[in-house]
Design a binder for these strands. Sequence first.
DNA 1: CATTAACCTTCCATCCTCGGGAAGGTCAAG
DNA 2: CTTGACCTTCCCGAGGATGGAAGGTTAATG
Lengths: 139, 139
Amino acid sequence: MNIGDVARLSGLPAKTIRYYEAIGLVDPLRSNNGYRAFRESDLHKLHFLGRARSLGFSIEDCRTLLALYQDRSRASADVKLVATEHLGRIDAKISELVEMRNTVAHLIDACAGDQRPDCPILGDLGSGPIKRLAGPSTH
Amino acid sequence: MNIGDVARLSGLPAKTIRYYEAIGLVDPLRSNNGYRAFRESDLHKLHFLGRARSLGFSIEDCRTLLALYQDRSRASADVKLVATEHLGRIDAKISELVEMRNTVAHLIDACAGDQRPDCPILGDLGSGPIKRLAGPSTH
DNA sequence: CATTAACCTTCCATCCTCGGGAAGGTCAAG
DNA sequence: CTTGACCTTCCCGAGGATGGAAGGTTAATG
């Protein structure tokens, strides 16, 4: 199979597949003409990678998971650990975004959104606790 | 004020402030010794930027918001639009992450996490709809 | 046989938002 | 005079690809 074939079959862009080869995630053979020659096993790996990436696993996580995938004597605990850490990162990111979301949504609610310049959104962004340089004390 | 001062006062790293200058978000004066000389107005801008960035606005959004902030004849509708589009992007991102989260959480639940190699997580990643090349039909 | 179109190759640059670190200039205190 | 804390510019790297240029290969046409 040439790269175009595995691209269609795996759903990954050819560019991405070349990139995955460059960073050592897949290692296709080469034909006489220099074209990459993918085996079924390569296609399988690429499919695995596409699915893992779509679940948000980092490339390094993918590398680990792929190694575990191919290790018949793996412990499922090792896989679960990788996934659990990933879940923790997802949850942290969600919390962060939800907090942003709430703040932004409140500001939007408070803004009239008309032709007048008065705007609580800009008001919020421009105000707040700016520290001041220590000056002559009024104390 | 030197960069270290505004860094402390704005809460932004000096590196970030230099970067903001490089991309034209702030434009401090220069002292005779070549040091950046920040005015109160620069500090104010940096504070504005820090707050907007912490709410997840992109640099380009920040550029727009900063321009509106300094435009006395702005319409609050313009600000609200930027914020509303941003909110939409946050919500989309949250949805995406929540979907990932649920999938990953289910897989984790299904995994024994022991010494045995059997693992539904790897099972999920490695299976699924791989398309096949059209071959000799058995039909 | 010549051409064309669809492949494939490598290499280099770009996106975004900085952060790290090198090499070197400046300034105030002791 | 030295020390240490500043400051400067410059280049490299992250993650995870993506875009494009310049050129080789192959299969199907005319």
